[in-house]
Design a protein around this nucleic acid. Sequence first.
DNA 1: ATGGTAGACCTTCTA
Length: 259
Amino acid sequence: MRIATWNVNSVNARLETVLRWFEEAQPDVACLQEIKCVDEKFPAEAFERLGYNVAVHGQKTYNGVALISKRPLEDVRRGLPGDDTDEQARYIEAVVSGAQPVRVGCLYLPNGNPVATEKFAYKLGWMARLEAHARELLTLEEPFALLGDYNVIPERRDAEFPDNWTGDALFRPESRAAFRTLKNLGLTEAYLQADGAPGAYTFWDYQAGAWQRNNGIRIDHALLSPQAADLLTGVSIHRDVRSWEKPSDHVPLVIELDA
DNA sequence: ATGGTAGACCTTCTA
């Protein structure tokens, strides 16, 4: 089972590019973030024509996430548990059916900048809720994967110019510590040696020629339960997509599970 | 120290 995560930065502005990638990469499941539209404006028919099922948790203008799957999606849950007052659409989860069902969580973790505002507190609160939710899922002792735009640069080697990120919410010690705490619950990062080499970035800013200068960061991640980690056979980053016409500022991260 | 780009949408906010 090929499972992808991709922050598309508006699914409607990017539809041609997104569909081209789906036809080339043939993911079985895709987690999309920053679709930037409400459910009714999501171009579901375009994906259905390619043979996919669609589950959307949308929002006007900002955020919004979706799960796209060739296999049926069951037990769809919208929103991250832990705060009924949270109105931002940043999490959707479903069980992908099959001989070996896999629960897939698609997440768009808050950016958190500027740090001296409530935005950073919201980020850290959201990460605490994600940890609590992962803790719940682990008690099921089933294969699951949490994929998405984590908006966290885990280590210095995950940035071309790490010193540029000092003080940024993506690289603050609190953000990195929360990401470590999440992993330390017993989750395995889908992260092959080759992808861990310097330059395995998933995001290049639109500004200041970041792509041309390879001023990238690795902020899109995939964390696996022990039962899913046993099924992991591959990881890849579709770096070349950043050089396409009208690209997103993120590129797809793809994992392969023997399921 | 600043500005550089992109998207949604109405004028500025988010990233």
